[in-house]
């Protein structure tokens, strides 16, 4: 019984414990870790992933998966850069040209989300393969539009999303905090979010309980792509450059963070609190390893262990629950 309680405690707080241990260890090596500047840094470093993680959490809760959003990031930069250039050749001034291009990026994202949702919900095709296909589609489109060359045709105020700060806080950090708050409210306090949990828990039971499940699957795929557009805007603003090749590598980092945060792959479980914890934990690890001058590849190894460990935790929980069932 005592063991049971201990393991329950560990499962609940393990991520926080790891965070504190890593933080304490890094502080011993370099006290700079504990500075406010460093915390802002950590948040800034996870802002792009954070925006994406909101959409990924919703997708996973709904019992689906999306591997295509990474290439929407690059496509967004290309659309805004080359779109802005194109509209300027039509005689528009840079600012309206940029804003129209951003709207076009959202429109394209909507279409891609609908395509994903259509094949997954209407034809019951495996979401993983459908979204791998649309991922290639978007990378290809970005490359065709740009001819493979990066663009830096952004108006000067475009630094706002990725570079500019209010005091010491970058606007990108504010954007991600707003995303966290909005998605927390959607998933926990709205009928839409509650329905996503039902659909993810058992899609067929939900359908037979009168829920129009297709509508919700379409919605989560579109929302996912919208998140990717926002992430794309932040990334091209940080770099003041857009290329079809940006963003592809972020996909699995984000999915890893969400899963480390306790979101199951089979739907109906997970929440924003876990996702935020997972993200910040990964941010801290990355930051600590940088401070102690460890290589980027060390981070990969650490991430590998964390993913296996957190999936193991949830699986053990489920196995135990099933065992007490029978």
């Amino acid at each position: 019984m005592k063991n049971e309680k201990l393991s329950l405690f560990l499962r609940k707080y393990i991520l926080y414990i790891i965070m504190i241990v890593i933080g304490a260890a890094t502080t011993c090596v370099n006290a700079r870790f504990l500075s406010i500047n460093n915390f802002v840094n950590i948040l800034r470093s996870v802002s792009i992933q954070g925006v994406l993680a909101c959409g990924v959490t919703m997708i996973l809760v709904s019992g689906n998966i999306d591997l295509s959003f990474g290439s929407m990031i690059g496509l967004t930069g290309v659309i805004i850069g080359y779109g802005g250039k194109f509209f300027q050749t039509l005689g528009m001034s840079p600012t309206p040209a940029c804003i129209i291009s951003i709207l076009i990026a959202f429109a394209v994202a909507t279409v891609i989300g609908l395509i994903n949702g259509y094949f997954v919900s209407k034809w019951k095709m495996p979401a993983m393969m459908v979204t791998v296909a649309t991922q290639f589609l978007m990378t290809g489109l970005g490359g065709i539009i740009s001819g493979g060359y990066p663009t830096n045709e952004f108006p000067s105020w475009f630094t706002f999303f990725g570079k500019d700060r209010i005091g010491i806080i970058p606007y990108s950090v504010l954007i991600v905090l707003v995303f966290f708050a909005v998605f927390y409210v959607i998933l926990n306090k709205t009928k839409f979010g509650r329905t996503i949990y039902a659909v993810g828990g058992n899609a067929e039971a939900s359908r037979l309980s009168g829920i129009d499940t297709k509508k919700y699957i379409f919605s989560v795929y579109v929302i996912m792509q919208w998140c990717a557009v926002v992430a794309g805007i932040i990334m091209s603003s940080q770099l003041m450059q857009g290329s079809h090749s940006y963003g592809g590598s972020v996909t699995f980092n984000v999915i890893a963070a969400v899963i480390i945060g306790g979101c199951g792959m089979s739907g109906g479980t997970g929440n924003m609190k876990g996702t935020i914890t997972g993200l910040i934990l990964l941010g801290i690890i990355q930051n600590s390893l940088t401070i102690i001058n460890a290589s980027e590849y060390t981070q990969y190894v650490v991430r590998a262990f964390l993913i296996i460990f957190s999936i193991w935790l949830t699986t053990v929980q489920e196995l135990r629950a099933n065992a007490t069932d029978k």
Binding site: G201, N202, E204, A205, S206
Partner: peptide
């Protein structure tokens, strides 16, 4: 299989 959400 199609009646309940067992985990919820």
């Amino acid at each position: 299989t199609v009646g309940i959400i067992a985990r919820d």
